[in-house]
């Protein structure tokens, strides 16, 4: 049955080359923890991806309840956490995932650095990776404000003050982020929401695609 379905689609779209390309990429011995336990360091990238997928999914569920405005944001998070079935788990996964992903991406970066995997011909992939690291930090910063509780608000105030202390363009950055050169309020919350939910995830998805395509093209760096 499944085979016939596959053939039906394959006849029309010739999907075998794509499918074989995905399925057949070889996993060399030196990155396979099943053969060398120390190769677990090669898992960090995959785990980063795994958590990012979880972040996308849990985040999508969070937006089913979350309301991005200063009157209701806090109440909606409180409701989600206290009343909604599994709300606590979903918010918990998103909250802890945000920390875990930083840990994992940090470890992944260190692995790539200390195995010298960023050297020719993989320079571009390193650059894309570092850009994604920045995006993840940005996601952490913007997401922190969204519950609109005390620590969220004041951490954001401090963050914006830091941005403001950048010479020349400081006020510009702050205004861009918070919607006003002075007030941290309703506009700030909606901007952070938009950045957290649309801008940065879109950028992250694009860069992840580029990251993976480059890996598939070049293959994983060889053994040391």
């Amino acid at each position: 049955m499944l085979q016939r379905l596959y053939d039906w689609v394959d006849e029309r779209l010739d999907i075998t080359p794509i499918w074989r390309d995905v399925a057949d990429h070889e996993v060399p011995e030196h990155v396979n923890p099943a053969h060398h336990f120390s190769a677990f360091v090669y898992c960090f990238g995959g785990l980063t991806f795994f958590i990012i997928v979880i972040q996308f999914l849990s985040g999508m569920f969070l937006t089913m309840y979350y309301v991005p405005d200063i009157v209701n944001a806090y109440e909606s998070v409180k409701y989600l956490q206290g009343e909604v079935a599994f709300g606590m788990i979903v918010r918990g996964m998103h909250h802890w995932g945000a920390s875990l992903v930083i840990v994992m991406v940090f470890l992944h970066t260190l692995r790539v650095f200390f195995t010298g995997a960023y050297k020719k011909p993989r320079e571009l992939n390193w650059v894309v990776g570092v850009l994604m690291f920045f995006i993840l930090m940005g996601l952490g910063f913007t997401g922190y404000l969204l519950p609109w509780d005390m620590k969220a608000y004041f951490a954001t105030v401090v963050g914006l003050q830091m941005a403001e202390s950048v010479p020349i363009i400081g006020t510009l950055i702050k205004t861009l982020l918070s919607g006003d050169p002075e007030i941290v309020g309703a506009q700030t919350l909606t901007r952070f929401f938009a950045i957290h939910v649309f801008f940065l995830p879109a950028a992250l998805l694009g860069l992840m695609a580029v990251h993976f395509i480059m890996i598939r093209r070049q293959g994983i760096a060889g053994p040391l």
């Binding site: 806090y74 956490q81 606590m88 788990i89 918990g92 909250h95 509780d149 608000y153």
Partner: peptide, 13 residues
């Protein structure tokens, strides 16, 4: 981890 440590929420900003 999620079950053991519910994510924190402080009072309204």
């Amino acid at each position: 981890l999620t079950a053991a440590h519910p994510s924190p929420l402080e009072r309204l900003a």
